[in-house]
Design a protein around this nucleic acid. Structure first.
Lengths: 247, 247
DNA sequence: CAAAATTAGTGGCTTTACGCCAACAATAAC
DNA sequence: GTTATTGTTGGCGTAAAGCCACTAATTTTG
């Protein structure tokens, strides 16, 4: 860059005023999933303000240019405000933007998906007004704010697609868990039954779980199961194909 | 919604002024890949304006709130402006946003990846000033504008990851093509050799190609190969695992 | 306290997919 | 014609996956 170029750029930046540009509003929304009594649930918030006041919506909102330095930080912040915890798994799904989804004009939303165990969130979520876990089918069945029904559907699809070659569902369970619970989590997310022997072979040979002794029979019948928890640092990458058809 | 609610909302919308909000600038960038003489190339544009004037960058720019009604439409528009064609494959990769990547402050970029055959673009691309196809390694080797090196890398990774379970590389070839060419396209994208028999077994049993007669020997040696083209409507979904290790 | 019920975990056979390599086929170069 | 070169197919050994029944360790029930 020559000296005159540098001067040029300086001038450019001084003359630049963001209010001269009509930029879209940018929001971040998060589809937070957990497993409650074996069923997949999603966290929704009843909107307190216009537009769409009174409708249930995914947690989210505007970027706070002062507070947030990164999109994923913004997503993590919104998530913690509603659940009180840091999610063990947070992933960007996709971004929608157009001039029809919000009455205010061009708007852009970056959708994230998060997974977490239910127990640590239960008390906190109860304490936040107009916020609750919904069974996924019920959430999809109602008239959500904006295009959140589509967003939720996209997140759900991402989750089940990725479950074909990762171990994402572990993040929805409270540790420690049994292999049967884990298999049921996979089955719930996939909406399909898995073959027991194959599932166990693959999960165990993937070497992503630590065994933590026997199950103290919590009122359960039958032979007590071995207990496991996810190995530390299993945050992002754990590519394991754990799926077939099976009865 | 009650009547007073409706009035409320009306008032809200009338009082709303986008210039009251400091929104991030939103841009769309596209990593356009093609295969030239068997090597993967990416289209870059030399920036004509500040900031980063003179550096090579991915095609892209601001959303035109007047012209674009959708993010992907904006991406398609930028792509067509530079290549003269409509890409057979366009996919959103991910969105970066923070307050450090652009000297103007908070900015958000939605990254797309596109695949296309080279031949139909060659003449047009030549005619566009400061725009050319770069061999991928050369593109990655230089000092690209903004964080475009990372964006390009992310797009490349998405392409090779997805090639493990889709047939994306077909979109980089001029039709018709031979199975050997297709295999070489896969190998170039994956950076690894594939086993011939397995590759053919899977591609053919996937039933995504139409055979179009014999190859007119174009100066080539050896037995002439059968020619194929992708079945119509293979745009998005064609999930086929076509990869192993191989010699 | 014994038998039945229930859930966890394993053995072992069958089937399928894949990697590998060699044979065969069709063309150009010499 | 013979050789070199590239495309295409056959067939076999191996590893993984599906399947189903059997064993194991508990609680429940009569």
């Amino acid at each position: 860059m020559t000296a005159s170029d540098k001067a040029d750029e300086q001038r450019f930046l001084e003359e630049y005023n963001p209010k001269d540009y009509l930029s879209p509003l940018v929001t971040v929304d998060v589809a937070i999933f957990t497993l409650i009594e074996g069923r997949l649930h999603v966290l929704l918030v009843k909107r307190a303000n216009h537009p769409e006041r009174g409708r249930w919506a995914l947690p989210g909102g505007f970027i706070d240019a002062g507070q947030d330095t990164t999109l994923s930080e913004a997503a993590a912040r919104k998530l913690e405000e509603k659940t009180g915890v840091t999610a063990p798994y947070l992933e960007q799904v996709y971004t929608v933007g157009d001039n029809t989804r919000d009455p205010r004009g061009w708007s852009v939303t970056v959708l994230y998906m998060a997974l977490m165990a239910h127990a640590p969130t239960a008390a906190f979520v109860d304490s936040v007004a107009d916020t609750r876990w919904w069974p996924l089918a019920d959430a999809m069945g109602q008239d959500l704010a904006f295009d959140h029904r589509q967003l939720l559907d996209a997140a759900r699809q991402r989750l089940s697609n990725k479950t074909a070659y990762t171990v994402l569902p572990v993040h929805t369970l409270d540790a420690p868990f049994t292999l049967t619970q884990l298999q049921q989590a996979f089955e719930e997310v996939l909406g399909a039954a898995l073959e027991k022997k194959s599932f166990r072979r693959r999960i165990l040979s993937a070497d992503i779980l630590d065994e933590v002794g026997e199950a103290p029979p919590p009122g359960g019948r039958g032979r007590p199961a071995a207990l496991f928890r996810a190995k530390a640092g299993l945050g992002e990458h754990a590519f394991v194909r754990v799926v077939g058809e099976g009865k």
